Computed example of a mutant assay.
Amino acid sequence: MPKQQVPEAVPLIAVVGPTGSGKSQLGIALAEAVGGEVINADALQFYRGMDIGTAKVTAEERAGIPHHLLDVLDVREEVSVAWFQQRSRAIIADVRSRGAVPILVGGSGLYVRAALDELEFPPTDAEVRARLEDEIEMVGTAALRARLAEVDPVSGARLGDDRRIVRALEVFEITGRPFSSYMPQRVYHQPAVQFGLQVDRDVLRERLAKRVHAMVERGLLDEVRELEANGLREGRTAARALGYGQFLRVLDGEWSVAEAAEDTINATRRFARRQLTWFRADERVQWFDWLDPGLLDHVLSALRRSGPLS
């Protein structure tokens, strides 16, 4: 296929949707068609060695397309949205500077928004947070929620758990601004276009079950065993990842492989529903049938029609 021209007004393409919908394949096909490079926006694919359980594309599947932000963290390391925003935006600028098209691909909704949208991260102060945590232990949740409602009624009405109440009060104490003032707006940081994959839920449910069983057959338990030896349990994010937390329980003798697989299937289905809810709330996403034989052509047609976006 000859290289397609991308409108100058659209320097960034994002491919979004639920897990198992074919985002990676569409991202690679788009990159081949428009001269692009893929930037990973799946939070768990940042981790080295987490390959089978995250359905990470292999070197062969990448078809020579450069992929960024894959295998950049050790399983012991923690990842933050702020870290991703900084790294992804630097990569987007670099890709564009070389005349290529950056294509963000992933289903981690907040990470996608951090790359695409105007999203400001409030500062932190460990001492202030520790003091507030001690206080909520002593006087209780209700007292601090009432204090929060006085200085930030929006957050006071919305937040219920101790951790978030403490965080909101911490931000107000440090900055003098309500925590709710940092809420992201659906305004692109730079012109962008988002393509979402619309799925048949019943078909996706079956596909996810088959995918988990295929992961088990490919050696998911051995992958978890190897990662455990390399510190998997020390990483709060990696150890709780779908599939990995379940198969750690197999290693602990708590579950059988079949029980871990079944729980992983159910958890993955729930996760896919949450992803759909998240992305459907964004009216800027253009949706396409994931099983459409002409999917790539239809997405390219939509891309050619794209004009300046806010």
Rank of each mutant, 00 (worst) to 15 (best):
residue 1 M to S: 13
residue 3 K to M: 14
residue 7 P to A: 07
residue 11 P to K: 02
residue 11 P to Y: 03
residue 14 A to K: 00
residue 17 G to H: 06
residue 25 Q to E: 14
residue 26 L to C: 02
residue 27 G to K: 04
residue 30 L to S: 00
residue 33 A to H: 05
residue 34 V to Q: 05
residue 38 V to H: 12
residue 38 V to W: 12
residue 41 A to Y: 03
residue 47 Y to M: 13
residue 49 G to H: 01
residue 49 G to R: 02
residue 55 A to P: 02
residue 57 V to K: 00
residue 58 T to K: 10
residue 58 T to R: 12
residue 59 A to P: 07
residue 60 E to R: 12
residue 61 E to A: 15
residue 62 R to G: 12
residue 63 A to Y: 00
residue 65 I to P: 12
residue 66 P to I: 12
residue 67 H to Y: 14
residue 71 D to S: 10
residue 71 D to T: 12
residue 71 D to N: 15
residue 74 D to K: 11
residue 75 V to G: 04
residue 76 R to S: 05
residue 78 E to W: 10
residue 80 S to W: 07
residue 83 W to C: 05
residue 85 Q to H: 01
residue 87 R to E: 15
residue 88 S to T: 10
residue 90 A to G: 01
residue 91 I to G: 00
residue 92 I to C: 08
residue 95 V to R: 00
residue 96 R to P: 06
residue 100 A to H: 15
residue 100 A to N: 15
residue 104 L to S: 02
residue 108 S to K: 13
residue 109 G to N: 08
residue 114 A to W: 02
residue 116 L to A: 01
residue 117 D to R: 11
residue 117 D to P: 03
residue 118 E to A: 11
residue 118 E to I: 12
residue 121 F to N: 02
residue 123 P to A: 11
residue 127 E to D: 14
residue 128 V to K: 08
residue 130 A to T: 05
residue 133 E to L: 13
residue 134 D to I: 00
residue 135 E to Y: 03
residue 135 E to C: 03
residue 135 E to F: 02
residue 142 A to S: 13
residue 142 A to R: 14
residue 143 A to P: 08
residue 143 A to G: 09
residue 147 R to Y: 01
residue 150 E to P: 00
residue 151 V to P: 05
residue 155 S to G: 01
residue 158 R to K: 13
residue 159 L to Y: 05
residue 159 L to M: 09
residue 160 G to V: 15
residue 160 G to A: 14
residue 164 R to C: 13
residue 167 R to A: 11
residue 169 L to C: 07
residue 173 E to C: 03
residue 175 T to M: 07
residue 176 G to C: 04
residue 179 F to M: 09
residue 181 S to E: 13
residue 184 P to R: 11
residue 186 R to G: 05
residue 186 R to T: 12
residue 190 Q to L: 15
residue 202 D to H: 09
residue 207 R to E: 14
residue 208 L to P: 08
residue 209 A to F: 00
residue 216 V to Q: 04
residue 217 E to H: 09
residue 220 L to H: 08
residue 220 L to W: 02
residue 224 V to W: 11
residue 225 R to T: 10
residue 229 A to M: 00
residue 231 G to M: 07
residue 236 R to I: 14
residue 237 T to M: 15
residue 237 T to Y: 09
residue 238 A to C: 13
residue 245 G to P: 11
residue 251 L to H: 13
residue 255 W to T: 09
residue 256 S to F: 11
residue 263 D to W: 01
residue 269 R to Q: 14
residue 273 R to T: 14
residue 275 Q to K: 11
residue 276 L to C: 03
residue 277 T to H: 12
residue 278 W to N: 06
residue 280 R to K: 06
residue 282 D to P: 03
residue 282 D to Y: 04
residue 284 R to I: 00
residue 286 Q to P: 01
residue 289 D to P: 06
residue 289 D to M: 06
residue 292 D to Y: 09
residue 294 G to H: 09
residue 295 L to R: 00
residue 296 L to A: 01
residue 297 D to T: 03
residue 297 D to E: 11
residue 297 D to G: 07
residue 304 R to D: 01
residue 304 R to M: 01
residue 305 R to G: 15
residue 306 S to M: 06
residue 309 L to K: 05
